[in-house]
């Protein structure tokens, strides 16, 4: 009866499919339905304590566990990549507790759990994108108290949020928010898009896929249903803009994707590569998930990412 936590065993004996019991999943699904009915509204839910730390995707994991079925194909990314440690760890978790088929290809996935990125590949109807959210409250910096911030949402009092953008323009001449850039959903609720770069904000607008957001620590779920308006806050005379790079991806040559800056030596050498590994591999016609990257010298430094 005490066979549980050992990290070496690949067994999931004693656990329900996808870890959560069915009653808990039903509770979460009810919260998800409510969230989809009121786009951008944060629904409190009875988040369970998960075997991963708070802030490491427990909200996203609970959402994924509640919507996933045995026929689904799951993709997990962190910073756009399938091979970052936390993405691997979450994928392993679902392999263990749900014996689920996983994939690194957006086109094959039915459910994609993500931290900090929206895939570059356009999503299609029927896909579900699950965002991990550390802090669901876009007004936290303005009204740290939940009692007040919930009122501001209820009465749609968002003037103070706009003031923060005004302050940026007054100070720098432009809006200096670059990730976790607040959006107005369906013209009604102010929403945090999670800490994705603002580069990804436009992808949320009118997206055919279902976008679900889970915060385990703060016990909140919210959602953007397919084809919903998601507008990034801005001014008429200082319109919203996304990041641009002078460089293109050193591997696939993409000039339109979000780039990671990589330091190549200790003399200031650096290069820019796609943060979305699946997208980059697809453009190069390579198989994602192999340890070798086409176009780069072999000799992977396994282990250095731990």
């Amino acid at each position: 009866m005490i066979q549980v936590m050992s990290s070496n065993t690949e067994t999931s004996k004693g656990y329900n499919f996808a870890y959560l019991d069915e009653q808990t999943k039903r509770m979460i699904r009810r919260a998800l339905l409510k969230a989809l009915s009121i786009p951008g509204y944060q629904v409190p839910f009875g988040a369970r304590e998960m075997p991963l730390p708070c802030g490491w995707g427990t909200g996203g994991i609970q959402v994924t566990a509640s919507v996933i079925g045995p026929a689904d194909r799951l993709k997990v990314i962190d910073q756009g990549a399938d091979d970052t440690t936390n993405a691997i760890s979450i994928r392993r978790f679902f392999k263990k507790v749900a014996q689920i088929v996983t994939t690194e290809k957006v086109d094959e996935a039915t459910v994609i759990q993500t931290r900090h990125r929206v895939p570059e590949t356009a999503l299609i109807e029927g896909q579900i994108l699950v965002y991990q959210v550390p802090q669901p409250e876009p007004l936290r910096g303005i009204a740290p108290r939940q009692i007040e911030s919930r009122k501001l949402h209820a009465y749609a009092e968002y003037g103070a949020m706009q003031v923060t953008l005004y302050e940026d323009v007054a100070r720098f001449g432009y809006i200096a928010r670059i990730y976790e850039y607040p959006v107005m959903v369906n013209g009604r609720h102010l929403m945090s898009p999670s800490p994705i770069p603002k580069f990804d904000n436009p992808k949320m607008q009118n997206n055919p896929a279902i976008q679900l957001f889970g915060s385990g620590t703060e016990k909140r779920i919210y959602a953007v249903p397919p084809y919903t308006s998601v507008r990034s806050l801005d001014f008429d005379d200082h319109p919203f803009e996304v990041q641009k790079w002078k460089q293109s991806c050193a591997f696939c040559g993409s000039g339109t994707s979000y780039l990671d800056e990589v330091i190549t030596d200790d003399r200031g050498g650096r290069m820019f590569v796609c943060s979305d590994t699946d997208y980059c591999a697809k453009r190069r016609g390579a198989q994602p998930g192999t340890s070798e990257v086409a176009g780069s010298p072999a000799g992977a430094t396994a282990g250095s990412s731990s």
């Binding site: 009092e157 968002y158 003037g159 103070a160 706009q162 003031v163 005004y166 323009v169 801005d234 001014f235 008429d236 005379d237 200082h238």
Partner: peptide
């Protein structure tokens, strides 16, 4: 703040 809270969006 007050103008923005009632919809002013031109900086």
């Amino acid at each position: 703040e007050r103008p923005m809270s009632i919809g002013a969006r031109h900086y």
